[in-house]
Design a protein around this nucleic acid. Structure first.
Lengths: 329, 329
DNA sequence: CTGAAAGCGCTTACAG
DNA sequence: CTGAAAGCGCTTACAG
C-alpha cells in the first residue's frame, strides 16, 4: 500500500503548523528563512510534495492548459505541438492533450477539459464555434486559437500570414515565367485552405493571371500523390502546381517522379509551412516558413494577457512568414 | 466574472441533497431513475459539470495519465504518441503530456506528474532508472515503459521484438546474396539501438557473416545522410546498409542519391519501424513494422492490470513485428 | 512571522 | 432510495 505523505505529516515532523508547511512551499509567502529551510528539509526527507490537485481545488492555479491537436502523426501538427508543449512546460504549465480526430466532438472535448479546471485552452485543430468560445469564457478559461480565427471578436488567435506567404510564392513563379498555374487545396472549410487559396488568387490577379485548374486534397501526402497525378495527367500543360501545404507538395513531387516529369524544369511545385521534412527527399521544396516557435510563444502570451485582463478586446496576432527558395520552384 | 455552478447549486435548484446530485453523476449509484433524470436535466440547464479536480481529491480517480514522449516532431515518436493518446482518450483517461528533451530531468518530470495524482505513467522516451520506478510505486501509480525495459523486474514494459525484426531483414539480405553489410546505429545507450544491433549481429553470425563496419547516428534523418555519405564514400564496397530506424534509412537513401549510387542494385538499405513516411519518397523502404497501435493497447492493459493487482510480478510484453518488403532492399 | 479555523467542491460511509 | 455529516489535502484570510 503506497503511503501518501501529506502536509500534516510534514508539519508534525517539523514541529510547525500545517499552514507553515504550505507557506514554505509558496514562493512569496512570509516565513522566517530558517524555518522555511527547516520545513523544506523535513519535507524532502519524508518525500513530500504538495498535492497539486488539492492545491487546485483551493481556487488556486491548477497549472493545467488544454491543448487541442490534430492528427499528431502529420508533420505540421507534430511540429507545432512540439513547440506548444515545450513553451508551456518551460513556463510552468502542464499540457492536457486533447486529440481532435475527424469524428471528435470539439464541444464535448472542451467541456471535459474545462471540468479539469484548466487555466486556458489552446486549440490548433478542428473548427471552433462561437459556442465553444462562450463556454470557455463562462468558465473563465481563456481560449487561444492557432491557425484559425473566429469572426467577430470571438477569441484570441495567432495565425501566420497566409496571404502574404502565397504572394511571395506567386511572385517567384511569375518571375520564372510560369503562367499556367494549378492550385491543390486542402480540406474544405478549413481556415488555412481558404486564406491560402485567397492569397494565390489575389496575387495571380495582380499579375493579370488566374488559376488554370483547382483540385482538392486533404493536406496529406498521399492525397498529394493522387491529386498530383490527376493534375499531371490532365494535359493542361501546367508549368506550376501550388499546394496548400508541404505534405501535399511532397506528394506532388512524388507524382511527378512517377510520371517522369522534371521538377522544376517541366513543372514547379510549391508548398507551405516548411516542415522539418521539406528540405529532404527527392526534391527539396520551395516553400514558405510558418514560424511555429513564435506562434507558440505568442499563444502563451495571449493566454496570460487575458488571465490578467479577461475583458479586453480579442486580438488576432499575425506572425510573419518568409519565403524559403529551394529546388522545386 | 465567470460563475462556477457547483453541485450545491444544482441540489438547491432540483430540490435534493448534494449527495443526490453526486449520485446522479455516478454511473453505478443507486438512485431512483426518475430522480436521476430530473437532477441531470436541472444540471444540464444550469450548465453544471462535476469539478474533476474536486472529485480527484476525494481519493477517487483523477483520470490523469502521464505520458512521457520524446521529440514529437520525429516521425516515430509522433506516430506512437498519436496512438497512445488515442487509446487513452478512448478509455476515459486524460493524457498529461510531458516532453522529454535531451536536457530534461526525468526524475523531476515524473515527480511533477505524480504531484498531479496521475493514475499511471507511460514512458516512451528517455532512460528510466530504478529510482523512477520506485517513486511511481511509492505513489501507487503504475509505470509502463514502451520500447525500453528495466532490468530486474523494475517496471512493466511493452516492446517490439527488435531481435526477430532484424533477423528477418538479415535473412532477406543474405538471400539476395548480400555479404558486405554495414550497420548504422542510433543514439548510444538506448535500448532500441542495443537490441537492434544485437539482432543484426546474431543473425549475421548465424550465416557465418559479420558486419563490415559500424557507424552511429542519432536516429534523425540528417544523421542518416551524413553517416550514409561517410559509409558510401568509405570504399568498402558495401552491398547493404542496415539502419536502426526508418528516419536514418531515409537519410541513407538520400545520401545514395547524392552519390549516384543505385538502390537497391548497388546497395540495399533497410530501416526499422515502418513509419507512415517509409512507403513514400525516392525509394520506398524495406523495413520492419513496429505495431504501435498494439503497443499502445498493451500499455494501457498493463496499466489497468496493475491498478487492480499492484503487487503482481512485472511483465514485459513483446509485440510481434512483420517484415515489410519494398524497393530499398 | 505564526497558528487555528474555515472552506475549496466533491464523494462516501453512515443512518434511516 | 435518500440526506446529514465527515473528510479528501491544501490555502487563505483572520487574529495575534
Amino acid at each position: 500500500m503506497p503511503v501518501r505523505v501529506t502536509a500534516d505529516d510534514v508539519a508534525k515532523a517539523a514541529g510547525v503548523s500545517r499552514a507553515m508547511v504550505s507557506r514554505a512551499f509558496t514562493p512569496g509567502a512570509s516565513v522566517a528563512v530558517r524555518k522555511r529551510e527547516h520545513v523544506l528539509r523535513v519535507a524532502q526527507a519524508l518525500g513530500y510534495r504538495p498535492n497539486l490537485i488539492a492545491r487546485g481545488l483551493t481556487g488556486q492555479r491548477t497549472g493545467l492548459v488544454a491543448v487541442v491537436a490534430g492528427e499528431i502523426s502529420r508533420p505540421y501538427e507534430a511540429w507545432l505541438l512540439e513547440h506548444i508543449v515545450r513553451v508551456l512546460s518551460a513556463n510552468g504549465y502542464q499540457p492536457l492533450l486533447l486529440p481532435a480526430f475527424r469524428d471528435a466532438n470539439m464541444t464535448e472535448m472542451i467541456d471535459h477539459a474545462l471540468a479539469y479546471q484548466v487555466e486556458g485552452a489552446i486549440v490548433a485543430a478542428g473548427s471552433v464555434s462561437r459556442d465553444i468560445a462562450d463556454r470557455c469564457q463562462a468558465s473563465g478559461a481563456p481560449l487561444v486559437l492557432i491557425g484559425r480565427v473566429l469572426e467577430k471578436n470571438g477569441a484570441d488567435a495567432v495565425c501566420c500570414d497566409n496571404i502574404k506567404g502565397m504572394w511571395q510564392l506567386v511572385e517567384r513563379l511569375v518571375k520564372q515565367g510560369r503562367r499556367r498555374i494549378a492550385w491543390l487545396g486542402g480540406t474544405a472549410d478549413t481556415f488555412s485552405d481558404q486564406e491560402r487559396r485567397q492569397g494565390v488568387e489575389e496575387a495571380l490577379a495582380h499579375y493579370g493571371l488566374s488559376l488554370q485548374v483547382q483540385r482538392r486534397g486533404d493536406f496529406s501526402l498521399s492525397s498529394g500523390v493522387s491529386e498530383g497525378l490527376a493534375l499531371l495527367d490532365s494535359r493542361l500543360a501546367l508549368d506550376a502546381i501550388m499546394c496548400a501545404n508541404d505534405a501535399m507538395a511532397l506528394g506532388v513531387v512524388e507524382a511527378a517522379a512517377q510520371r517522369g516529369i522534371k521538377v522544376p524544369d517541366d513543372v514547379a511545385i510549391t508548398g507551405f509551412d516548411d516542415v522539418p521534412g521539406a528540405a529532404w527527399g527527392r526534391c527539396p521544396l520551395t516553400t514558405v516558413r510558418n514560424p511555429v516557435n513564435e506562434t507558440a510563444l505568442e499563444a502563451l502570451r495571449l493566454l496570460e494577457t487575458r488571465v490578467h485582463n479577461p475583458t479586453c478586446d480579442n486580438q488576432v496576432i499575425r506572425v510573419g512568414v518568409t519565403l524559403v527558395p529551394r529546388s522545386s520552384a
